[in-house]
Design a protein around this nucleic acid. Structure first.
Ligand SMILES: [Zn+2]
Ligand SMILES: [Zn+2]
Ligand SMILES: [Zn+2]
Ligand SMILES: [Zn+2]
Lengths: 132, 132
DNA sequence: TTAATTTTTGTTATAATATAACACTATGTA
DNA sequence: TACATAGTGTTATATTATAACAAAAATTAA
């Protein structure tokens, strides 16, 4: 039921904007874009974002305070994410690497703690930026 | 040279506060604490934090906007971090797992991007919080 | 040493990100 | 219907972080 959620008007509007962008969007830039659709206040955007993150339709890039759509239905279950971020051009991509995901999903530390979620952000230079 | 940096007065004051805490501190809580030592403005704290992160003395917990001291000299080289975060009591610990670090350090995706840095945050419940 | 350069500082102001509180409305369920 | 739950709209405010600028301190290069 969590995954086949019926979205509300505001949630749809916000998701739509994010899905149209290949790159992460910031909350206030989303707010600016949706003002013509009747969403006026930050809180309306943040509430929609919270819900969309919760149901796995979008992810938050923590180091950038920005939100990107998820194209992989599996993320909606795991809430475990891996991103690649170019430190020069800020290009962000979600990495779907089954082997890496499995490895992290089953990771146990020596403190008796078991993990249900993780967020991994890789930083470097993308192909374009390496070749200047 | 990067690692044996001589710290300035403000950097020392801020580092000192962070090292005395076992848990991550937020910038404005640090500011509150250092006011008696003559640091008056947010920017003075943020500048010290930036430098301390840069030289690897502290790490930023991105999902919490908070800063924690690093006890592992190796981090000062790699700038690659792994944290464990309890979602109930907010207890944060740095994970030093050589095998995991090596695995991530050498990770290559299929987009021709190679990574120099990463930040991994695991979320779950700590031992105490599992047993309520 | 002296002058040039870089880094750090102190300060004020402001930008950017995010939440509290409250009254109201829609939706689901018994 | 009545009750519970979730979402809305709004105003105000809290929290996190940076811009801009002038002055002081530390480094470097003649
Ligand atoms: Zn995803
Ligand atoms: Zn790039
Ligand atoms: Zn460390
Ligand atoms: Zn705990």
């Amino acid at each position: 039921m969590q995954n086949q959620q019926v979205l509300t008007k505001n949630q749809k509007i916000v998701l739509d904007i994010i899905e149209k962008s290949s790159q992460p969007l910031k909350a206030y830039s989303i707010l600016f874009d949706v003002k013509k659709k009747g969403i006026n206040a930050p809180l309306q955007v943040y509430r929609a974002l919270d819900k969309l993150v919760e149901i796995g339709k979008i992810h938050k890039i923590e180091s950038r305070n920005a939100f990107i759509a998820c194209k992989n239905s599996k993320c909606q279950i795991t809430k475990a994410t891996v991103f690649s971020i170019c430190e020069n051009c800020e290009d962000v991509k979600e990495i779907h690497d089954h082997k890496l995901s499995e490895h992290l999903k089953h990771y146990k530390d020596n403190k008796g703690m078991k993990y249900s979620k993780y967020n991994l952000e890789f930083f470097g230079l993308c192909k374009k930026c390496i070749n200047k």
